[in-house]
C-alpha cells in the first residue's frame, strides 16, 4: 500500500474494533454455547478434526504441548472440600473466540492474522512466518502451531487416510500457526449461494462442524446481525452486548439471573462466543 493511498484512506485503515468502527453488515458470525446442555462428549472436537484436516499428534507430542485440537473440551472440577462432588466435571468447549479486538491480530509481525468484514479473525497460512507471537498474546490459548510437517508424517495421515481430507481446507505445513476458523469454508459456500440469489444467508443455512455434531444442540451458530437468528435471540435474551467490556446486567445489585457470559470479557478482546452458565446439579 502506497503512502498516499494510506493517507487518503486512513479512516478505513485505522480500525477501532468494535466501537467507533463501521457496523457489521450484513454479517457478524457469532456463537452461543449452552454449558447446561454440554455433556463433555467431545463429538464437537472430533467433528472439528474431520472437517478441518487437523493432524492427530499422538500421546507423546500431546504431552510436549504440541496438540492441535482447534476445539478442546476443558474440564473443571469444582473444589468444594468434598472428594467427589455430585456435579462431577464441568465441561467447557473452548475454541477461537473470534475476538472483535483480537490481541493476536495486533502483534503479528507480518499481518498474517487480521479481521474480516464478517467479524472473523482470519489466519492466512501462506503469510505466517511462525513467530508464535499471536499464540503468546492469546488470552484463550486457542492457537496451535505446526511443529512438524504433518502431511508428510506417516504417523498422522497414512496414505489411505488422505482420501478423507476436506478439499476445501488447506493442509497446513510445518512452521505455521492455525486455529478455529468458524468453518469459514462452509460460510463462504453458503454466501456464494445466497449472493447468487441476491439475499443474505438465512438462519439455519450454515452450520459449523461442531454445531452439526453436537448431540444435545448445545452450540448455536449464526449471524448476530440477523434478528431472526437463534444466536441473536440468545444474545439478546441474555442481555450480552458484543461491544461492551462490562455487561450492564452484571452491574446491577440484584442480577436478573441470566446465565450468559463471555470469558475474560474484562480484557476487552470482545469475544464473539457467549457461554451460558451451567445450573443443573446432577452429574449428567
Amino acid at each position: 500500500m502506497s503512502v498516499s493511498n494510506l493517507l487518503e484512506n486512513w479512516s478505513q485503515v485505522r480500525h477501532e474494533h468494535p466501537v467507533n468502527d463501521k457496523p457489521h453488515d450484513p454479517y457478524k458470525w457469532a456463537m452461543a454455547i449452552d454449558l447446561d446442555a454440554c455433556t463433555g462428549c467431545n463429538a464437537c472436537s472430533v467433528a472439528c478434526y474431520a472437517e478441518n484436516n487437523i493432524p492427530v499428534v499422538g500421546k507423546e507430542r500431546f504431552q510436549h504441548g504440541q496438540q492441535m485440537h482447534w476445539l478442546r473440551v476443558e474440564r473443571y472440577w469444582e473444589e468444594d472440600s468434598r472428594e467427589f462432588p455430585d456435579q462431577g466435571f464441568q465441561f467447557l468447549p473452548m475454541m477461537c473466540q473470534q475476538c472483535e479486538a483480537a490481541p493476536c491480530e495486533t502483534v503479528c509481525p507480518v499481518a498474517a492474522t487480521n479481521h474480516t468484514a464478517d467479524g472473523l479473525n482470519s489466519q492466512i497460512y501462506n503469510r505466517c512466518i511462525g513467530s508464535r507471537y499471536c499464540s503468546a498474546n492469546c488470552p484463550f490459548k486457542v492457537r496451535y502451531f505446526n511443529w512438524y510437517d504433518y502431511p508428510t508424517d506417516e504417523m498422522v495421515w497414512p496414505a489411505e487416510m488422505t482420501q478423507q481430507m476436506n478439499p476445501d481446507v488447506s493442509v497446513r505445513s510445518k512452521g505455521v500457526m492455525e486455529k478455529c476458523t468458524f468453518c469459514v469454508q462452509r460460510l463462504s459456500a453458503a454466501k456464494v449461494v445466497a449472493k447468487g440469489e441476491g439475499r443474505i444467508v438465512r438462519e439455519g443455512e450454515v452450520q459449523t462442524a461442531c454445531q452439526q455434531s453436537c448431540p444435545t444442540g448445545a452450540i448455536s451458530f449464526g449471524n448476530l446481525v440477523n434478528p431472526e437468528s437463534r444466536v441473536h435471540k440468545q444474545w439478546a435474551a441474555q442481555q450480552v452486548v458484543l461491544d461492551a467490556d462490562k455487561q450492564a446486567k452484571d452491574e446491577k445489585e440484584e442480577g436478573p439471573g441470566l446465565r450468559g457470559y463471555r470469558i475474560l470479557e474484562e480484557l476487552r478482546a470482545y469475544p464473539s462466543v457467549m457461554y451460558l452458565e451451567r445450573v443443573r446439579e446432577s452429574a449428567v
Binding site: 487480521n114 468484514a117 472473523l120 482470519s122 492466512i124 476445501d168 488447506s170 463462504s188
Partner: peptide, 8 residues
C-alpha cells in the same frame, strides 16, 4: 479484499 475471500 479480505484474505479469507480467496485463501482457504
Amino acid at each position: 479484499n479480505d484474505c479469507w475471500q480467496c485463501h482457504k
